[in-house]
């Protein structure tokens, strides 16, 4: 096989990302679900389901199941890993900051964002940004539903 393409595909599919893609975390069903949301990207058909178990305002457990591309799957897996123990407000801030990173802002320092930084390279592939954001937008909707006192939400990105 000839040389690697000039553009660093590895920026998009970093080792950590590929690892989350191959072995996604946080798929185990929860014993108790306080709020759940379903996200859908009609453009590519990707689907994400987020379920949260809450203890007061704190996320005790998260289940994130995705059916989609490597980027969406990895993003969902990373999210599932870092959510437990965060307050819903903190989780919303994380989602918003990650969205801004995807739109060019530098990655926030001194924050507990686990492997999320590995997805920073997605911003160089604009058409794939939505793939990375779908789990996070779904999470935001789940939290918004929780605040409204509801148990379910449906998200569509496009």
């Amino acid at each position: 096989m000839s040389s690697r393409p000039e553009v660093p595909l590895d920026e998009l599919y970093r080792e950590v990302v590929m690892d989350h893609y191959r072995r996604p975390r946080g798929r185990q069903p929860l014993s108790k679900v306080d709020v759940a949301a379903k996200g859908f990207n009609p453009l590519c058909g990707d689907e994400v389901e987020v379920a949260l178990e809450l203890s007061g305002e704190t996320i005790a457990q998260a289940q994130v199941v995705s059916r989609g591309c490597a980027i969406c799957t990895a993003s969902a897996s990373i999210m599932a890993e870092i959510l437990p123990g965060k307050s819903v407000t903190q989780a919303e801030t994380d989602a918003e900051e990650f969205r801004q990173v995807m739109h060019g802002k530098p990655f926030p320092q001194d924050r507990e964002l686990g492997d999320l930084e590995a997805l920073e390279g997605v911003k160089h592939f604009p058409v794939r940004v939505k793939c990375a954001l779908l789990p996070w937008m779904t999470l935001k909707d789940a939290i918004a539903a929780f605040r409204r006192g509801e148990r379910h939400a449906q998200t569509t990105t496009e």
Binding site: P5, E6, V7, L9, L12, Y13, C44, D46, G68, C69, A70, I71, F125, R128, C131
Partner: peptide, 13 residues
Amino acid sequence: IHPHDLATVLDTY
């Protein structure tokens, strides 16, 4: 391989 990932890799070629 998801079609999206495939199209991205193909694009680099």
